[in-house]
Write a protein that binds this DNA or RNA. Structure first.
Lengths: 195, 195
DNA sequence: CGCGTGATTGAAACCCTTCAAGTTTAGTGG
DNA sequence: CCACTAAACTTGAAGGGTTTCAATCACGCG
């Protein structure tokens, strides 16, 4: 069923507990898009009112400093949500970048979808609140990690957050996510491997 | 008008643009509390379903590691919101602490207030979404700062985020917020003063 | 095959921490 | 009003972890 958005459907019915009949009512409110590797979905200064559900592939959300150096705020592999939430409500230009690191197919939603879905399905409404709040909690956890623990433990936590992603992204991106240099990641890995 | 929650009232009518008649309807749905300096509002392992609006004083939101060392996630002076959002929806025990660093009076809301206010006032509904999303954006900004810039600039950004707070909290709390030692803050200050 | 990108490793420099001592500040009681 | 005390802040020196820079290696791809 729904080969183009199998994960999305499964997520809605199994995780968000939205009834099949409600899901069917929402079909007109979203679309599926496929982007090639390297495709840019949002650039700094742009406005992008979409919410992405990653059906397959890998997106990343990042900033660039004045020298063009990238800092990855998070990765979004299969079954993750990604959006510049600030962009949804206001028309302020974004500070962030989003692009596809692998060939990626996404389910494209906008604010109307959320409105409709919360109206149709009480389960979705509850679930949507829940994921927003869990998102905030995870951001606090990350801040807490960054201010409280040395790089080695941050790396270990990264592995827990994104299992198997080390095989999918280059090491310098992990370094960029952790706020350290690729050389430091290499040394941490070496040390961890020797145990 | 409303001497006990003057700032709260002003915030609602001027910032959230809620009409006076709508604000009056909400009066039964909140209360005002005053806490002495040092009072604990939430401890790790506890559950606390309140949302605080700081009318006067200063709250702080923090974690502790296994040695009891504190890491401040944020401060909430006058006109700031504070809550453990994860606690609102679920009954999971909290990972965080909240306490009053100064004698503080807060406006106490719970989830029912938000429900009622979004129902009564369309302006509030829009505004509430807006502050949630701005909150997320600010958390991303802080993560970006922590992974991209050295301590000195983090300190300068801290001063912008919390003007005049340096006179209200000890230096070790600022260090704890920045993820560095009090000694390092002292040296950064010295360096900045010499310019 | 040669090129470019990414990973590894080493050495020096640097920033921040740790530890320790000294100084300032604020509060308290004589 | 001063003396005492505790807490906070400053300053110095040594040490550790990370960065920076550079050289080398590994791999995939035109």
């Amino acid at each position: 069923m729904y080969p183009e958005f199998k994960n999305f459907h499964q997520y809605f019915t199994e995780k968000a507990l939205v009834a099949q009949k409600d899901f069917e009512k929402l079909l007109p409110y979203f679309s599926v898009e496929k982007y090639p590797k390297g495709h840019t979905l949002l650039s700094k200064g742009g406005v992008n009112k979409h919410i992405y559900f990653v059906e397959e592939g890998l997106l990343r959300f990042y900033t660039k400093d004045e020298n063009g150096k990238e800092f990855i705020l998070h990765f979004a592999p299969e079954n993750w949500w990604l959006t510049d939430r600030n962009n949804l409500c206001s028309n302020e230009p974004s500070e962030f970048f989003i692009d596809a690191y692998e060939e990626t197919s996404v389910v494209l939603l906008n604010h109307d979808f959320i409105e409709k879905a919360t109206e149709i399905s009480h389960e979705f409404r509850t679930f949507h609140e829940h994921i927003l709040q869990r998102h905030i909690k995870q951001l606090y956890r990350r801040i807490n990690l960054l201010i409280s623990t040395p790089a080695k433990e941050c790396y270990i936590e990264f592995l827990k957050t994104y299992p198997n992603i080390t095989q999918r992204v280059p090491q310098w991106m992990i370094a960029s996510y952790l706020g350290i240099t690729p050389e430091a990641v290499s040394r941490i890995r070496k040390e961890l491997a020797s145990k």
